[in-house]
């Protein structure tokens, strides 16, 4: 499944008096791994929710390939099979096994029981949790839970992964693994990935960074990093 192209044009989102996003426009290439940075309260979560159809913009438009997200009257198909979410908190259901958790989006999409089982085992293997399908979330470390959440996000073969501070509550080692996993997903599947993050180590892992302050896009601060911004997925695939 190739990655999606994301095009945001003049996006604004107002909550009462607060202008959480103010005329934001940008493009993300298919297969790009993009970091969305900015101080707390700057509008990162708001932006991801608009792209993922969890919220609607006050004005402006979001295109994910040929889908006008802000116009979707019934976003269930979009959520099931175009986009995959990873939140800061894993939101795994404690009563369900890891396999059942990973299967949740597939259930909504009426995937057969057998195919669900195959896919979820495959996905758990992909995130390094092979053989733990019947475990429950309480038996896992924070980093492992976040990897299950990534497996869940991949269940519908999405073209776009939206991750909101996926390493926000993880230690350095676990964060590193999650970053690596997101990079692998992009490399192997070509999925477009947008990650909102405070994590200072992110520049090692991403192609490009966009920075947002008080709801407006501004140039990213200079980071002393060998990777720099701007390495596109295309460039990476060529190398």
């Amino acid at each position: 499944m190739p990655g999606a192209r994301v095009v945001a044009e003049h996006l604004s989102r107002r909550y009462g008096q607060v202008l959480a996003l103010d005329d934001v426009s940008f493009e993300v290439e298919p297969g790009e791994l993009l970091a969305l940075t900015g101080p707390s309260g700057s509008g990162k979560t708001t932006l991801l929710q608009l792209i993922g159809s969890l919220d609607r913009p006050t004005s402006g438009s979001i295109g994910v390939d040929d889908i006008a997200v802000e116009q979707l009257s019934n976003p269930t198909h979009f959520r099931r099979s175009i986009v995959g979410f990873v939140f800061q908190l894993h939101y795994l259901l404690p009563a369900l096994s890891l396999q059942q958790n990973v299967e949740l989006p597939m259930m909504a999409a009426h995937v057969s029981r057998q195919e669900r089982a195959e896919r979820s085992r495959e996905l758990l293997k992909e995130v390094g949790l092979e053989g733990r399908a019947q475990d429950h979330p309480s038996e896992l470390s924070g980093g492992e839970r976040q990897r299950v959440a990534i497996a869940r996000a991949l269940g519908g073969f999405p073209r776009l992964i939206l991750a909101d501070e996926p390493t926000g509550s993880l230690d350095t080692a676990a964060s590193h693994r999650v970053w690596k996993l997101l990079g692998d997903v992009r490399d192997r599947r070509g999925t477009t990935v947008i990650v909102a993050s405070h994590d200072p180590s992110l520049t090692e892992h991403v192609d490009r960074e966009i920075h947002i302050v008080d709801g407006r896009l501004v140039p990213p601060p200079d980071r002393a990093s060998p990777a720099g911004g701007g390495r596109t997925a295309a460039a990476r695939h060529e190398s």
Binding site: G52, L54, H77, R79, Y91, L93, P105, A108, A153
Partner: peptide, 16 residues
């Protein structure tokens, strides 16, 4: 709430 919100976010429809 967060469980049902999560289900909605991963594509469960209202009736489901």
């Amino acid at each position: 709430r967060s469980e049902f919100a999560l289900l909605s976010a991963v594509g469960w429809s209202g009736p489901q």
